[in-house]
Write a protein that binds this DNA or RNA. Structure first.
Lengths: 205, 205, 205, 205
DNA sequence: AATGAATGAGTCTTCATTCAT
DNA sequence: TATGAATGAAGACTCATTCAT
């Protein structure tokens, strides 16, 4: 039985990592519910099932939690792009999966917090730096994907053109998540149609 | 009767309006610098050059300032759309002015705060309501403009299709303002190119 | 026509006195409505139909208004006692008028403020001194009245006994005004009956 | 295992109760000294020997402190009446203990604050409700006591008559506490004499 | 005489953070 | 490792008072 080592509970690094995650998951819930400023350490500690003071054994400050949280979100986006890259024709896949993208963007839950992140970035330079770093990674993933898709279609792939197309796409995705917040009942079918029109133009021309 | 000309300066409504604007302009600076929550009444009062207590003669609460501020932004957007409507062919004008739109979106100053507004709306229902109301107005303006432009080109103008196209356009515009924040050095020329590609597809097909 | 002198409006002392009264009457309304602390100078100034700043031309401070107000109340009580003294048999008159005394005590309006006065006296020594001074006057009036009534009935009138009877009577009157506040629906008929029982015992035995 | 006895001091409810009492006792001092409005949370916190912020771990607001304080006073009065009820002949006991009642009423310390309570009740509905509730309890205690005393003396005990007598007695008690404030040197002996005269008339006739 | 714009000290309350246990 | 009691530095807001006009 490999469970024996866990019996020794002195500064177990695995346990510590679990505790950190526990806090981050609680933070995700609280940040979504109340925002970065609105969520108090007390609220987070209750959600995490741990005392407020104890959280400081795993994070130096509330800002440190926000930072770790921002990192986590980046991994989620990165995962989505990795999945997309495994598809046979990623460009077509983007258009085919339009309804999935739209549905995800319109679901307000997970996207409330990115909004907080952007707002926070505008006054917290550490967050801004981390956000830019994460962005760089995702952007590189998307770029590779679009580039190879366009190459196989013998479309131009020069860097400058690609940059504009990528930023336009990403802007749209992020903007959509904002609109979902205060216009939750948008007609999905027509959004999907327009999404395809715009994306086809950006990706395949 | 030498005192006559100055004697009638009692309860000057113009002066009061000026004071209100003074506060709102100070608030704009502080909100952009520190966010809605980060900007304290004390900070705003210093920027406005008047005591914190005095601000309450013009606004009932900090929330009232935020609300008035949100209204101001709406008027700015509305003005832009009104200008657009006076153009001979507004749809072509959007494409022609692409570089102007892009430049405005990339200028970080005025757009930092809308971001705050969206974030605030996700938990302050009063702000959310005001934001939706403003949105309704701008949206109606843009819709009328796009509709007549498409009609004169004999393109379909059914409501559902129009909705999707509009929401997609607006999403992109708003998303672009966010990107400008943490990717301030985007290549403008290529953004303009991609903007035209996407907008032409949405507006003229 | 004797109205001529009023045409000359330079520092008219009569006019000033009217203004003072105007403020005091406004203060009475506001104090009854909101208490000494609850009533702001702004509230009083609105009620008095005069700017807040101008009040300071007639009173040095809010405390000075309270003080003047306390004096006014004393005059009211003093007047009641003077009226009583003109009655043929004041002691019988007290018992005969029992229902009037009770009705006045139960009417919450004018008595809310005395309560404030007592409360204020417990922390404002100037008010306390004024209150004691006023009390001394009323007490002397009541004492004279009771003494002569008892003398004509050949009852003992030694000072010590009289003191106890007076303080007991006054305590009851003041206590009654308090009870009226949070027990406004007391049965008046039975109060009158008990009033007579107690007062007859104190006055005529 | 020397640490064992102290190890289990987590979330000690007794300690918490002590802290609450500590705050209430500090509040009693401050309220008596400065009144409900005059006493600041900062003043109370200093008196209680703990930070102002910490008080909010035990009370939701300053109003909650006032409310708890009002309740405490009620218990004190209720206790006095309970003691009285155990006496062989409570009615005689009231007359016998006259000097004790008078002494208690004249002691300014604990009675300063009830005055505040009444004043506060006239504009704070929550306090007013609590005060009425407490009053109901004490009144019922006193009523039962008087009723049985009168029954055993074969005196009338109809409800209406009893109401008048009770309200008159209570009015007197409460009024006495007010007089003590700004007439602290009343002659106690003569007060006791008058007290007996009035009470005997109200209770035994 | 009269205004009301303006001030600044003071109020209650919240919350990230620390520390004894 | 874990607690939660405790702190103190904010924050929004109120109000008596002053002063230029």
């Amino acid at each position: 039985m490999t469970t024996a080592p866990t019996a020794k509970r002195r500064t177990d690094p695995e346990r510590a990592q679990n505790r950190r995650n526990q806090v981050l998951e609680a933070a995700a819930v609280c940040f979504a519910r109340s925002g970065f400023h609105g969520a108090s350490m007390s609220e987070i500690s209750k959600q995490a099932g741990m005392s407020a003071g104890h959280i400081y054994n795993y994070f130096d400050s509330k800002d440190a939690i926000i930072l770790a949280f921002v990192d986590r979100e980046a991994e989620y986006v990165s995962g989505l792009l990795r999945d997309l890259a495994t598809r046979e024709d990623p460009l077509e896949a983007i258009l085919d999966d339009a309804h999935i993208h739209i549905d995800e963007s319109l679901d307000p839950q997970p996207w409330t917090v990115p909004l907080e992140m952007f707002a926070e970035a505008s006054r917290n330079p550490v967050i801004a730096a981390k956000l830019r770093e994460n962005e760089e990674v995702s952007r590189a993933q998307l770029r590779a994907l679009v580039k190879s898709g366009r190459e196989s279609r013998q479309l131009p792939v020069d860097d400058v053109l690609l940059d504009g197309r990528l930023d336009t796409m990403i802007s749209y995705f992020q903007g959509l998540s904002i609109r979902a917040l205060y216009r939750p009942n948008m007609n999905r079918a027509s959004l999907v149609e327009a999404f395809r029109v715009a994306m086809r133009a950006l990706l395949m021309t």
